[in-house]
Nucleic acid binder design. Sequence first.
DNA 1: TATGAATGAGCTTTCATTCAT
DNA 2: AATGAATGAAAGCTCATTCAT
Lengths: 220, 220, 220, 220
Amino acid sequence: MGTRKGKRVPRAVREQQMLDAAVAAFGRHGYRSASMDDIAGAAGVSKPLVYQYLRSKEDLFSSCIEREAAALTKAVLDGTRDLSLAPDQQLWNGLCAFFAHTAAHPDGWTVLHQQAPGESAKFAGVVAGMRAEIVALVTALLGRVAHDVGYDEGYDDDVVDREVSGLAHALVGSAESLADWANARADERPSAKETAATLMNFCWAGLEGLMKGARWTPSR
Amino acid sequence: MGTRKGKRVPRAVREQQMLDAAVAAFGRHGYRSASMDDIAGAAGVSKPLVYQYLRSKEDLFSSCIEREAAALTKAVLDGTRDLSLAPDQQLWNGLCAFFAHTAAHPDGWTVLHQQAPGESAKFAGVVAGMRAEIVALVTALLGRVAHDVGYDEGYDDDVVDREVSGLAHALVGSAESLADWANARADERPSAKETAATLMNFCWAGLEGLMKGARWTPSR
Amino acid sequence: MGTRKGKRVPRAVREQQMLDAAVAAFGRHGYRSASMDDIAGAAGVSKPLVYQYLRSKEDLFSSCIEREAAALTKAVLDGTRDLSLAPDQQLWNGLCAFFAHTAAHPDGWTVLHQQAPGESAKFAGVVAGMRAEIVALVTALLGRVAHDVGYDEGYDDDVVDREVSGLAHALVGSAESLADWANARADERPSAKETAATLMNFCWAGLEGLMKGARWTPSR
Amino acid sequence: MGTRKGKRVPRAVREQQMLDAAVAAFGRHGYRSASMDDIAGAAGVSKPLVYQYLRSKEDLFSSCIEREAAALTKAVLDGTRDLSLAPDQQLWNGLCAFFAHTAAHPDGWTVLHQQAPGESAKFAGVVAGMRAEIVALVTALLGRVAHDVGYDEGYDDDVVDREVSGLAHALVGSAESLADWANARADERPSAKETAATLMNFCWAGLEGLMKGARWTPSR
DNA sequence: TATGAATGAGCTTTCATTCAT
DNA sequence: AATGAATGAAAGCTCATTCAT
């Protein structure tokens, strides 16, 4: 009844099962604490088979990171694909996609955001790449907003770029933290749209104000 | 003539040396990867002495977390102690203190923000407590702002509280991400004040807009 | 065209291919280090097929040893088959055959001389048998010489036998070492005849002297 | 009551005990087959201590090789130290020392002669170095003989050198094989002096004949 | 106060070997 | 005849931890 012992399964399928088990284990216990025994067991498979297919613990972890990063990136990019929308709608779509994905794959998100960067730079790179891609996407969006509002007139392109880039980083950081935050509460968890709304509400008002020149400075 | 062999050092001092070495090791290699051998060596001390003073690796890590969390909390609280200031000045002071501290103690910040939460709940608790304290501080601040602006009139206290709490979380999340971001660039690292200004600029404009009722909703 | 996938090959041929690959692997990496995976791969065949034909790693190694031992023995025996020759010519022929064969099958020679004896007695036996056969051959030769020279007159048969047997062992030992030595130098390797001449020169002069009663004793 | 459990022993002593156990294990089972567990057990010690002192299996094996090679070299060199002796007496002394040492340390000799060369070049080097040293010693001895007998007159130095070097190699090879041979027979083992006499007898008569121009050539 | 000596337990990795097709 | 899928068993190595001094 179901996946019973000894079942011969084609390699591609088994590999995905292993990656599923590995992502869960790494997400819940961390890279070092998760043991290959546990992962193999959870995948319903013997350890040597994991090694035969994924080569080593390092490679297994890398494969997890890559798969999860690609999936998340794809989700966000798909969400923002429609370039005919207004920038705010596009951002809204992207955020919804992001929060929906992180909610649907909490272990994957944990691996990407909490585990990988803490381990050696070998792993951090892939995550950094993914993050850069998303930051670039947001930066482009904000750039369009700034242009639409006419914010960039009368300023150096350089200054605008740097400020917009800073905003993008802050925004992505907020989103990441909110994803953790949302995933943390098992009960009464906010839906992806609610979380997206919170952030959208927060940042969009801010951006409108900012683009119109509302700027804060310390009293001295 | 320098830290030479056999130097008899009072316990309190030795403990701090050990914690220093441990924070550095844990920050750079992670909880599991950092070995007691390395830590003892870096502290210029034999392993049994570490066990005599700090009992176990878990206790050592806990001590690190507690020390660093207390130090960070104290820095932020000190920065926002002057209640006579306007809320924005108070927030500004707190952010400056926060970014200055995370910049001055990068390993400690890494332990708190990247390593501890990934390990077992045993450790996450302390960090969560610290975070809650800071979120509460920010929430109080935002509450004052809302009140000053008259934002809360005509709304349920509940609704306001929830919204303000969400904003506080987003703000703290941004700050944490920006701290990582600032620490990541070894060269051309922005000063604490620059980082604080970026965030202040971003969020303050946003908050002003929001409090005045500027609210974003999806077109459908 | 060539050894392509799925090629159906008769069992006898496949077995030889496997033994070839195995001898090469065992000779180069040793019995334990050479893996069945490597051997199967080098033979252009899947692992289960190796097991189907050769049963186990032990059996495979045994088969290698037996094949190589038989081949070497045959070469030497063929070289010395002509009993009508003078003993020295016969020995010369045998040495030439020996060095030619070890030079032509370096991996086989390594398996026989360096790998097999180091592993369990199970394998050493076959090699020992081969060696005994060759030692006996040399002993017979030296016996003929002694007789021709009249060396054995006036001595106990026992004494002569023991001395001649010792000489035979020394001679075989020299030959084995010289085979290693010749195989070791990839460039400027001496030809089989040169190597044989070196040894022949050395031992024949010695034997002639010895047989005539020239005998060394420590001064005290 | 002897070396009982838990006995604290200074490092230098323990290291020698470990090396003793390792040489025995490697000599009897080979490098790959001997397990660290066995070695540690035989040394009356836990595995981690072996790793703490000797770092790795490779390093342990290297240390064994080096220790045994140094000991054997020293024995032979000590045996031939007295340069005032006639060359044949010197050689006789060296051979006696050699056979006595290989008989007294059969496992060490096995490691040097049968196990090390079969494993990776990493190990073969040390043994090759030792062998080269001994070959050089013998070469020098033979050179003195050739000079005393006036053999080198009328020949190119080159030719003499090459021939003498060949003889040295053959002689060392014989000695090695005879050492194996002597060690192989547990009962009725020949004494070191007997083995040395066999070889001395054999080679010295040969050398005298050879130096006087007795040379063998194939009839065609 | 401080440490060299020592270990139990566990982890990653590899290998010879078999089953089902 | 031939192979992709799968595993039991064991090996090398590391680590947190303690004992005896």
